[in-house]
Simulated assay, not measured.
Amino acid sequence: MEIQLRDYQKAASDKAVAFLLNPRIKHNGLIVIPTGGGKSWIIADIANRVNDNVLIFCPSREILIQNYEKMQKICPFDCSVYSASLGQKQIAKITFATIGSAINHKELFNHFKYVLVDEAHLCNPKEGMYKEFFQSMRCKIIGLSATPYRLSSSRDFGSMLKFITRTRPCIFSEVIYQVQISTLLDMGYLAKLDYYAMNPIGWNELNLKVNTNGTDYTDKSVIREYERIDFYGFLVHIVQRLMNPKSGVRRKGILVFTRFLKEAERLTWSIPGTAIVSGETPKKERERVLEAFKAGEIPVVANVGVLTTGFDYPELDTIVMARPTMSLALWYQIVGRAIRPHPNKEAGWVVDLCGNIKRFGEVKDLRLVDGGNGKWAVYSNNRQLTNVRF
């Protein structure tokens, strides 16, 4: 079946195929596509066009299913899934796999010449399963990511976000294609977002303490600030207002991101029908809750530490960011849950209760900038966010 790719998706696929098939190129490449930009279609088109064995790594069963379904629409033949979490371990010409399942059977994949990695920023170039797997193979690799940076900490240099082509060592050494978030917004491929900064009265970010490696705020300091200003009551008040607005249309679904279970529990006690999804939620129960949420049967889902990637619900129109963070990747992934367009959605709302908009800006302002000689960096409103010390 022939799928009509968008211009930038076709351009990304063209660059990738040329890169993979060029025998003179020995290093690995990176493609940067914004959240909601359709990486699944690009992956499927690349795999279909190279006409060789292609191994596609996906970081979770949800993302694997999404990518595999797109592949089936382009080319349903010679495709398989190798993932214990999905109960399938088959190898074909085009194989979708999770690294946890493949790592213990590396010898089964020695014949693969090409590897595509979705959410490539999850590959640790210094250690871990991806590094071990790639070292055992002779293959050319292309990674795809919306957030191409990793947190790096050292005693001598402190903490910083490093663009993944600039880490030492690195797995992906060249950006072969990228498209800006603002470009896709201007073209109408992403939903318009309205931002609302609503810090509670008395909120003081100076009371938050940074952890020892400089990567985020400590649990202890966040909890102390929450309790000092009754953040829990404020969160309930805001969600109730969103559910029953004095003017305008009622929001179709409210997804609340919390850091701790306590905020989520307060919502369930105060707002009937609210459900909690966390890392402790059994898989079947999580799937049931999310399907009911999409069907409008559950008005509010309080999410504790999950649903930042792989949650595909274009109709979602309201995000409540009820946690402070120093992580640009986390901020962008959370906001990205509302950026997918849908005919019934005029604009997505991002309601921030913890100063994150001030810290990072709106995601449309994030820009990838090539500083020359491959020195890529991410900027927001002319402020460099990667490869600078916190």
Results as ranks from 00 to 15, higher is better:
residue 1 M to I: 09
residue 16 A to G: 12
residue 17 V to E: 05
residue 22 N to P: 01
residue 24 R to H: 14
residue 25 I to H: 05
residue 29 G to L: 14
residue 30 L to A: 06
residue 30 L to H: 00
residue 35 T to S: 11
residue 51 N to H: 14
residue 51 N to K: 13
residue 58 C to E: 04
residue 62 E to I: 07
residue 71 M to C: 09
residue 72 Q to A: 11
residue 79 C to R: 03
residue 81 V to E: 05
residue 83 S to L: 11
residue 84 A to P: 01
residue 89 K to Q: 11
residue 91 I to S: 12
residue 92 A to D: 12
residue 93 K to G: 07
residue 93 K to Y: 00
residue 94 I to E: 08
residue 95 T to V: 10
residue 95 T to Q: 07
residue 100 G to T: 13
residue 106 K to T: 13
residue 107 E to I: 05
residue 112 F to Y: 10
residue 114 Y to T: 14
residue 122 L to Q: 07
residue 123 C to K: 04
residue 125 P to F: 07
residue 130 Y to I: 00
residue 148 P to R: 13
residue 153 S to Q: 09
residue 156 D to E: 13
residue 157 F to N: 12
residue 159 S to T: 15
residue 161 L to Q: 04
residue 164 I to W: 10
residue 164 I to D: 10
residue 165 T to N: 12
residue 166 R to N: 15
residue 168 R to W: 07
residue 168 R to L: 03
residue 170 C to T: 15
residue 176 I to Y: 06
residue 178 Q to D: 03
residue 179 V to T: 10
residue 186 D to E: 06
residue 189 Y to P: 00
residue 191 A to S: 02
residue 193 L to R: 04
residue 204 N to C: 08
residue 205 E to G: 15
residue 206 L to D: 08
residue 208 L to T: 06
residue 209 K to G: 08
residue 213 N to M: 05
residue 215 T to C: 12
residue 218 T to W: 15
residue 218 T to Q: 11
residue 221 S to M: 15
residue 225 E to N: 01
residue 228 R to Y: 15
residue 236 V to R: 01
residue 237 H to L: 06
residue 237 H to P: 02
residue 240 Q to E: 13
residue 240 Q to L: 02
residue 243 M to K: 05
residue 259 R to W: 06
residue 260 F to S: 01
residue 262 K to I: 02
residue 265 E to M: 08
residue 269 W to V: 04
residue 269 W to L: 12
residue 271 I to H: 07
residue 272 P to F: 11
residue 273 G to S: 02
residue 281 T to M: 05
residue 282 P to L: 09
residue 287 E to C: 02
residue 295 A to L: 02
residue 295 A to E: 14
residue 296 G to V: 01
residue 298 I to Q: 00
residue 299 P to K: 00
residue 301 V to D: 01
residue 302 A to S: 09
residue 303 N to H: 08
residue 305 G to S: 11
residue 310 G to Q: 10
residue 315 E to I: 09
residue 317 D to F: 00
residue 317 D to M: 04
residue 318 T to Y: 09
residue 322 A to M: 01
residue 325 T to L: 02
residue 327 S to F: 13
residue 327 S to V: 02
residue 327 S to G: 01
residue 330 L to Y: 07
residue 331 W to M: 10
residue 334 I to P: 02
residue 338 A to T: 13
residue 341 P to Q: 08
residue 341 P to S: 00
residue 345 K to R: 05
residue 348 G to F: 14
residue 355 G to R: 06
residue 357 I to C: 05
residue 358 K to L: 14
residue 360 F to L: 03
residue 361 G to I: 08
residue 362 E to S: 05
residue 365 D to I: 03
residue 368 L to V: 07
residue 371 G to W: 05
residue 372 G to F: 12
residue 374 G to M: 09
residue 377 A to H: 04
residue 378 V to I: 13
residue 380 S to G: 08
residue 380 S to Y: 03
residue 382 N to W: 09
residue 383 R to G: 01
residue 383 R to L: 09
residue 383 R to E: 09
residue 384 Q to T: 07
residue 385 L to W: 01
residue 389 R to Q: 10
residue 390 F to M: 15
